[in-house]
C-alpha cells in the first residue's frame, strides 16, 4: 500500500504540476525492468486477485510515468536530463552477475526473479543522486521517495511477523538480505526527511 501511495504521489505531481523536476527517469526505467523481470509469472502463478491487480498496477503505472517523462510535451521539458546522469549498466550488470551466482534455483525465471530483487534494492540510487543535486525539492517528490523507501522497511517488519506466525513460511535469505540493503540505502534520506519535517523546513540534502 505504501508502494502504491508512492506511485500515486508521483503521478499526482506529474499530472497536476505537469512537471517531473527532481524525478529520475533512470530510477523509473530501472523499476520498469524490476517489474518486468519479476512479474513474468503474472499469468502462470496465481496468488490472489489482489496480487494480480497490484502487479498490473505496478507495471502499467511505471510505464505510464516513463511515457510522461519521455513523451509528454510539457513534462518532458521539465526533466533534469543534465543532472540525471547515473548509468543504468552500473547497476544492471552487477545485479545480473550476482543473480547468476547467488540464486535458489538455476532456471531462467528464477534467475530473472532474483535479478529483480537485487536490482530493486539499488534502483533508487539514481534518484538519490539527482535529489542531492536538486536545490528545490518539492513536497510531493520528497514524500514520494519517503514512501518508496518506507514500503521495503515495512516489508522487513512483515517478514519478521510471517517468520514467527506462519507455519509454512520458509526463510528467504535472498529477499531478506536485499530488503535490508534496500532499506539501509534510504537511511540517510530518512534522517534528513524527518529532520526537515520536525523543523517544518523544506527538505534539503547536504551536498
Amino acid at each position: 500500500m505504501t508502494h502504491l501511495a508512492s506511485i500515486c504521489l508521483l503521478l499526482l505531481k506529474i499530472h497536476t504540476m505537469k512537471s517531473c523536476a527532481g524525478v529520475s527517469l533512470k530510477t523509473q526505467e530501472l523499476y520498469a525492468l524490476v517489474f518486468v523481470t519479476r512479474y513474468l509469472d503474472l499469468f502462470s502463478n496465481f496468488v490472489s486477485m489482489y496480487n494480480t491487480i497490484m502487479k498490473i498496477i505496478f507495471l502499467s503505472s511505471t510505464f505510464g510515468i516513463i511515457w510522461y517523462m519521455r513523451g509528454h510535451k510539457l513534462v518532458r521539458q521539465s526533466y533534469d536530463k543534465e543532472q540525471d546522469t547515473f548509468r543504468h549498466y552500473f547497476l544492471v550488470i552487477p545485479c545480473m552477475v550476482l543473480a547468476l551466482v547467488i540464486h535458489s534455483k538455476f532456471t531462467l525465471l528464477e534467475v530473472l526473479w532474483t535479478f529483480s530483487i537485487y536490482l530493486e534494492a539499488v534502483a533508487i540510487l539514481p534518484q538519490l543522486v539527482l535529489l542531492q543535486r536538486t536545490r528545490n525539492i518539492d513536497n510531493l517528490t520528497g514524500n514520494y521517495i519517503f514512501c518508496l523507501g518506507a514500503y521495503r522497511a515495512l516489508y522487513l517488519l512483515n517478514w519478521i511477523y510471517r517468520y514467527f506466525m506462519e507455519k509454512n513460511y520458509h526463510a528467504q535469505w535472498i529477499t531478506w538480505m536485499a530488503g535490508m540493503i534496500q532499506t539501509a540505502i534510504y537511511a540517510d534520506f530518512f534522517y534528513y526527511y524527518f529532520k526537515s519535517w520536525k523543523k517544518n523546513e523544506r527538505l534539503k540534502l547536504p551536498a
Binding site: D41, N51, M54, S104, K105, W113, H170, T175
Partner: peptide
C-alpha cells in the same frame, strides 16, 4: 535440489 523461493509477495 534447491527449491524456488515462494512468490506470494510483490
Amino acid at each position: 535440489e534447491d527449491a524456488a523461493v515462494q512468490k506470494d509477495e510483490l
